[in-house]
Design a binder for these strands. Structure first.
Length: 188
DNA sequence: GACCAGATTGTCT
DNA sequence: GACAATCTGGTCA
């Protein structure tokens, strides 16, 4: 079952935790790839100084203020994309960054896109997984309730560990990173 | 293993 | 003009 919009309409921390174990699917002309979400981070709005949305709406972050359940894809470091889901009440500016996946289907395509052979190196980081899944800026604003990117629910129970977020320089003390315990595909 | 430099460009000040 | 929700490949141990 594809996760409905109501799933995303809750606060980012809740969505971030519940996305763990779910399946991210891209269906692009090159083929289908599927990965299990094993690591996420919540980004809030006002008060979260590392969130793109904390200073208000700009052309870049506009999608974060749009409807929950959309994809917020941004370009960073001159060469990488990161993938988020928009969450929370519409207009608030919250989102969840997908940080790593466990590759499940389309692994040969992932290897080709990434240029690496090691399975544990295919999707174990936010910029790695966008490359492996074929996600780029053209998919910014896409609806996750219908293709070409969707997220499917999972009935698996997972054990969740909480920690501080990675790769940021502001609001570094907030416990908004979540990952599946003992999963080898988590980044770092 | 740990640590460091370099890549490369959109975005905001 | 500074910096970025990163990754890779190098050095040194």
């Amino acid at each position: 079952m594809v996760l409905p919009r109501s799933f995303y309409s809750r606060k980012a921390e809740t969505v971030a935790k519940e996305l763990l174990g779910c399946f991210l699917v891209t269906n692009l002309p090159e083929g289908i790839t599927v990965g299990k979400i094993v690591e996420t981070e919540a980004y809030l709005s006002a008060g979260d100084l590392s969130s793109h949305s904390y200073k208000g709406r700009t052309p870049r972050n506009a999608v974060m203020f749009d409807s929950p359940g959309r994809a917020y894809v941004y370009f960073t470091y001159g060469m990488y994309y990161c993938f988020n889901t928009v969450t929370g009440p519409k207009g608030k500016g919250e989102g969840v960054l997908i940080r790593s996946l466990e590759p499940l289907e389309g692994i040969e395509l992932m290897k080709k896109r990434r240029g690496v052979e090691d399975i544990e190196n295919l999707c174990s980081g936010p910029a790695k997984l966008t490359q492996a899944m074929g996600i780029d800026i053209k998919l910014n604003g896409a609806e996750l309730t219908r293709g070409p990117i969707i997220i499917q629910e999972s009935d698996q129970k997972v054990e969740i560990i909480t920690s501080t977020r990675i790769g940021i320089t502001k609001s570094i003390d907030l416990p908004l990173r979540f990952f599946i315990k003992d999963n080898p595909f988590v980044s770092r």
